[in-house]
Design a protein around this nucleic acid. Structure first.
Length: 260
DNA sequence: ATGTCGATACTTTATCGA
């Protein structure tokens, strides 16, 4: 089973790009972030035509996440628990039945958090703490699950082209990295790092300043596996090709294969 | 080189977020 995550930066601007990639890569599940669309405006039928079931948690203008799955959803939950006042659409979770039982897919668009002197950074850190609580809850089920998405976290210095210049950025601040490390300490596995130890394997290149051409990238999109999912890990690969296409997203897809 | 995108609204250009 192949599970992909991709921040597509606007589904209206990226529908053809997304469907082209899905036809070629054919993941069983795709986690999309930054759809920047309300539920009713999401092009559900375009994905149904490719054989996907579709679940959306949308928002006008910003944020928004969507799940695509070739297998039907047993259950879908929208919104990260822990703060009833949080109205930002950044979390959707689904349970999917597979031959070996079930797999739970958690699709997140973790807050960016910049600038670090603003309430945006405290919102990011509190959101990360809430996600930790949700992960702890899910771990008690002792089932395979995956937390996939745009984490807006650079886990380590070799995940950014120039760590020195990112030291005070919300994506690389010690508080941010410590919370990401806390997910690993709970028992989650960074699927990409379990398969690859090469430095400078990026999933994002800014539109500005020729970042793609200079390979000034970041590794901020991640797939974290529960112990039961990590036991089934086969492979994990970044597909950087779509970054060179016409009208690209600033992120590229990353795919994990599990023997579920 | 504060350099690029996508979406929005008191829209045809400025703003916000990333």
């Amino acid at each position: 089973m192949k599970i992909a995550t991709w921040n597509i930066n606007g589904i209206k601007a990226r529908l053809e790009t997304a469907t082209t990639w899905l036809k070629s890569a054919s993941p069983d599940v795709a986690c999309l972030q930054e759809i920047k669309s309300m539920d009713e405006a999401f092009p559900t039928s375009a994905f149904e035509d490719l054989g996907y079931n579709v679940a959306v948690h949308g928002q006008k203008g910003f944020n928004g996440v969507a799940l695509l799955s070739k297998l039907p959803f047993d259950d879908v939950t929208r919104g990260l628990p822990g703060d009833p006042d949080d109205v930002q659409a950044r979390y959707i979770e689904a349970v999917i039945s597979v031959a070996s039982g079930v797999v739970r897919v958690v699709n997140i668009y973790l807050p960016n958090g910049n600038p670090t002197a603003s309430e945006k950074f405290t919102y990011k850190l509190s959101w990360m703490a809430r996600l930790k609580e949700r992960v702890k809850q899910l771990l008690t089920y002792e089932e395979p699950f995956i937390v996939a998405g745009d984490f807006n976290v650079i886990p380590a210095p070799n995940d950014v082209y120039d760590p020195q210049s990112w030291l005070d950025d919300a994506l690389f601040r010690p508080e941010t990295r410590a919370q990401f490390q806390a997910y690993l300490n709970l028992g989650l596995t960074d699927a990409f790092r379990a398969c690859h130890d090469e430095p400078h394997q990026f999933t994002f290149w800014d539109y500005q300043a020729g970042a793609w051409q200079k390979n000034h990238g970041l590794r901020i999109d991640h797939l974290l596996l529960s112990p039961q999912a990590a036991d089934k890990l086969v492979a994990c690969e970044i597909d950087a090709n779509p970054r060179s296409w016409e009208k690209p997203s600033d992120h590229v897809p990353i795919v994990v294969e599990l023997s579920l």
